[in-house]
């Protein structure tokens, strides 16, 4: 097996707040292979954005990474221990060098008083040895590549002159112009209309094929995951509770939370089915349940082990992993 592009081991992220130490991410391990699209799904508060930001060390100053946490970026010529980086200068490799990120709200992600072109050129000057003229040429080429009409004119415009869909395209052009090995897409289509979302997804698929980069695709929309990802990891309250190839996880979810998410989705194929919410709300991270984190909302909770022991991710023969005592018990009963 080839080395993963990025490997996250036992990532635990805590924030120091006035109310005490808040655990946002706990013992998360995941690998992304070169060219692979990994979908990361979960409700708000599940820790998916915090996990993604940790890869670029973008979490705020009150962040504490646990000592045993490791994030290893395997580049052709070197391995980078992301959490060991100290100086801002050294972090450039993960901040726009080998890793780029696109955000949900493209309006908030461009500086309003600097033209789109200047912002694209600026990052190219930082991350490559290009001259200003070359950087401009490449930027215009990238704008054209993502389907922005009249790229040379658009290059000189400000972000408020772009529509939502165009802004997201420009953001993708900017993120890809440095040829990153990994693109982190944090809810890139959530703020867009379905029609524009379909265009952006199609564009991202083309670009993966063309550039061969890996993508960490964060979303709460399982439909978007089904359409884009190779593998999926489902997060709940800071932990990965199920992960595996996207077909298996969506067709036959093992963890009761993944099943709950799928049951809550309105489906066009079956208009008569009731919408079944996952009962209750996601607990506050200040008040994490002991044992299985999902035990406060779980419809199949069966007592002692769920309340006391944290279930570990267990792999089945197809390469899928789920962290659930019931799944483990049923599997034990079968063998």
């Amino acid at each position: 097996m080839t080395k993963p592009l990025i490997s996250v081991k036992d990532l635990t992220v805590r924030f120091r707040t006035e109310e005490g130490l808040v655990t946002a991410v706990e013992n998360v391990s995941l690998d992304i292979a070169p060219g692979e699209v990994l979908g990361l799904v979960g409700e708000s508060g599940s820790g998916k954005s915090v996990t993604a930001k940790a890869l670029m060390r973008l979490n705020a100053g009150n962040t504490r990474y646990a000592d045993e946490s490791r994030i290893t970026l395997n580049l052709d010529d070197q391995g980078v221990e992301v959490l060991a980086l100290k100086r801002d200068r050294d972090m450039r490799i993960v901040r726009g060098g080998a890793i780029s990120m696109i955000f949900q709200e493209p309006m908030a992600s461009f500086a309003p008083a600097i033209t789109i072109g200047d912002q694209m050129v600026e990052q190219l000057l930082i991350h490559s040895s290009m001259t200003r003229v070359e950087a401009k040429e490449l930027s215009i080429e990238m704008l054209a590549r993502v389907g922005i009409p009249e790229p040379a004119r658009r290059f000189n415009q400000y972000s408020f002159e772009f529509s939502g869909g165009m802004r997201q395209r420009a953001m993708i052009a900017m993120a890809l112009s440095t040829r990153p090995k990994l693109l982190i897409a944090d809810e890139p289509t959530t703020a867009l209309d379905v029609t524009i979302q379909a265009q952006v997804i199609a564009l991202m698929k083309d670009l993966v094929a063309e550039f061969g980069m890996a993508i960490l695709f964060i979303t709460h929309d399982l439909g978007v995951i089904a359409q884009t990802a190779d593998r999926v990891a489902v997060m709940y309250l800071g932990r990965i509770i199920e992960t595996g190839p996207v077909r298996q996880v969506i067709r036959d979810p093992h963890h009761p939370y993944t099943r709950g998410l799928l049951n809550a989705l309105p489906k066009l194929e079956d208009l008569d089915s009731e919408l079944t919410p996952v009962p209750g709300d996601i607990p506050s991270p200040l008040d994490r349940p002991s044992g299985c984190v999902f035990n406060t909302r779980c419809p199949v909770m069966f007592g002692e082990p769920c309340l006391a022991e944290i279930p570990q991710l267990m792999q089945d023969e197809t390469g899928r992993m789920a962290a659930c005592h019931l799944v483990a018990r049923n599997r034990g009963a079968k063998t």
């Binding site: 869909g165 379905v194 029609t195 199609a202 359409q227």
Partner: peptide
């Protein structure tokens, strides 16, 4: 009809090769 086809399908094997609505 175009709005309907733009909804991402939950079936990973039905990765829409259908006509997507162009433009804005």
């Amino acid at each position: 009809s175009a709005l309907l086809s733009a909804i991402p399908s939950l079936d990973p094997d039905e990765r829409g090769e259908t006509d997507k609505l162009e433009g804005e």
